[in-house]
């Protein structure tokens, strides 16, 4: 335990390697939410209610959507896609919350707008990459052979498996995931509760895709401020016997 912690401290004190990135283009990710599995991975909910949820809704609790990651030089911007992944939703439009995660890997800075329980949190801070463990598995995602990495999010109580491409030199990734020696092509959270997988890579010159909206309204916080708000949300939901994923990005 302690050796691990000790080495970990050493690890954090070292800057992560940064690539001179020549990759420019847009990656489209398909997000597959599985509500029953999300519900089943809530430790504080009763076994009976989880089993009931799975029994009635298990076979059709999937919901798909697209997101995009724009990559340019040492920058990345992750946001929702205009495209709809659910054919049934063609012809219906939801209002979109302000959401983006913009990173500059040469300055090691991040600028994010993350909706949580009806509020928008505007995060400005250094990049805080996940403390990934690198595992010995290979898999192909969207034509690229990827290696497996693992991270346990102890606040959100999530087991996260990421697959990063060995041949795409970028530390970027979908959602808040980053810091691997290759572009993160797939992320699987809590055994399929949410799967985010790249399904289309378009290498092209980007123009204004990485620009931020002119008006940014929300609560300005740093990483710690955001995590504090998230922690409060989790505490309240658990106290109220409600699913923790309500009102936040999973």
């Amino acid at each position: 335990m302690n050796v691990k912690h000790f080495l970990l401290i050493i690890g954090i004190s070292l800057p992560l390697g940064v690539f001179a990135q020549e990759l420019e283009g847009t990656v489209r990710y398909l997000m597959t939410h599985n509500w029953s599995k999300k519900y089943a991975s809530e430790d504080h909910m009763s076994k009976q209610s989880k089993e009931r949820e799975m029994y009635i809704w298990g076979s059709r609790s999937e919901w798909k959507e697209y997101t995009v990651l724009h990559l340019k030089a040492n920058e990345s911007k992750y946001m929702e896609s205009e495209e709809k992944a659910e054919a049934d939703m063609e012809g219906w439009s939801w209002r979109k919350d302000l959401f983006f995660i913009k990173r500059n890997f040469s300055n090691n800075t991040t600028q994010e707008a993350i909706p949580m329980t009806g509020k928008t949190y505007l995060i400005e801070d250094q990049i805080h990459p996940q403390n990934w463990k690198i595992l010995n598995d290979l898999k192909e995602v969207a034509g690229h052979v990827c290696m497996k990495a693992f991270y346990r999010d102890s606040l959100k109580k999530q087991d996260i498996v990421a697959w990063f491409a060995m041949d795409l030199p970028s530390s970027a990734g979908p959602e808040r995931f980053c810091g691997l020696p290759g572009l993160i092509m797939e992320v699987d959270i809590n055994n399929g509760s949410l799967n985010i997988a790249a399904d289309k890579i378009e290498l092209k010159k980007l123009d204004k895709e990485l620009e931020l909206p002119a008006k940014l309204k929300g609560k300005k916080v740093n990483e710690e401020g955001y995590l504090t708000a998230l922690r409060d949300h989790f505490k309240l939901q658990i106290d109220q016997d409600r699913p923790t994923f309500w009102g936040i990005r999973y």
Binding site: L7, I134, A149
Partner: peptide, 30 residues
């Protein structure tokens, strides 16, 4: 791609990419 891992739990400490000849260098590390 070269990755320096913590031997205890395989956590990623640093990484780099070798040059065209496969040569690599991790400078100034603990």
């Amino acid at each position: 791609t070269l990755m320096l891992l913590n031997p205890v739990d395989s956590s990623l400490i640093n990484f780099t990419r070798a040059d065209n000849q496969g040569g690599f260098e991790f400078k100034n590390i603990k």
